[in-house]
């Protein structure tokens, strides 16, 4: 089985002598056509017209960073302007009643119907309501504390007590210690003691 038999050798010799048909021209034409078709087909890795190399990516990243920085600057500026811009306060005007002409009046009387601005009415005991804090020079952001406005109808305002402070983690204590309590009143004055009348109260 593993050896080539004599008749097989004869068959091989006969097949080697086999005349080849004259198809060389057609075969070469076919080979030429297929090779041309192979050349005309695009390569496996065609060159992309918009291919970006490493340098291009760095340029794009730089431009993106620049645009981001500009946008952040503009956005922060606009945010700062929004916080600082004071809201317009309506003027308190009232018509001035026309008084009869007096010889003692040194100033000319206003015409009828004109409105003059009145100064704000300030009572001695009243608590001035501050809607807006006065604009302060720019300070470090750590030291800025927002104090809420005092409400007029709050119990603190009624009792003339200072409003409760809102403490946060960066609250700074004042440098000068204020005296506690009211002058002339000691802690003994607040001591609650049993009085005679309360022990002998009749049901």
């Amino acid at each position: 089985m593993n050896n080539i038999t004599p008749y097989e050798k004869l068959i091989a010799a006969k097949l080697e002598e086999m005349p080849v048909p004259d198809m060389a021209d057609s075969i070469w034409a076919s080979i030429d056509m297929q090779l041309d078709a192979v050349v005309d087909t695009p390569k496996e890795n065609p060159v992309h017209p918009f291919k970006i190399n490493t340098k291009g990516w760095f340029i794009i990243a730089g431009i993106a960073l620049l645009i981001g920085a500009i946008w952040w600057y503009i956005h922060s500026q606009s945010a700062a302007n929004k916080t600082v811009t004071p809201t317009p306060v309506p003027e308190k005007t009232a018509p001035v009643p026309i008084a009869p002409a007096d010889s003692s009046s040194l100033y000319p009387l206003p015409r009828k119907g004109t409105a003059l601005p009145l100064p704000p009415v300030m009572k001695k005991d009243s608590i001035s309501v501050i809607d807006k804090l006065p604009q302060q020079p720019p300070v470090d952001s750590i030291q800025v504390q927002l104090v809420p406005a005092i409400r007029v109808d709050s119990p603190e305002a009624k009792d003339n007590r200072p409003q409760e402070r809102v403490f946060d983690s960066i609250y700074l204590l004042p440098t000068h210690k204020k005296p506690r309590g009211v002058k002339g009143i000691t802690p003994n004055d607040y001591r609650i003691s049993v009085q005679k009348d309360s022990t002998h109260k009749q049901p």
């Binding site: 089985m1 038999t5 004599p6 008749y7 004869l10 068959i11 006969k14 097949l15 002598e17 086999m18 005349p19």
Partner: peptide
């Protein structure tokens, strides 16, 4: 192992042998 007479193959034409194969 088949027994084939070599004389037959030698006398046979190459095209005929190819056709047999």
């Amino acid at each position: 192992e088949p027994v084939v007479n070599n004389d037959i193959i030698e006398k046979t034409d190459a095209a005929a042998i190819l056709e047999l194969v």
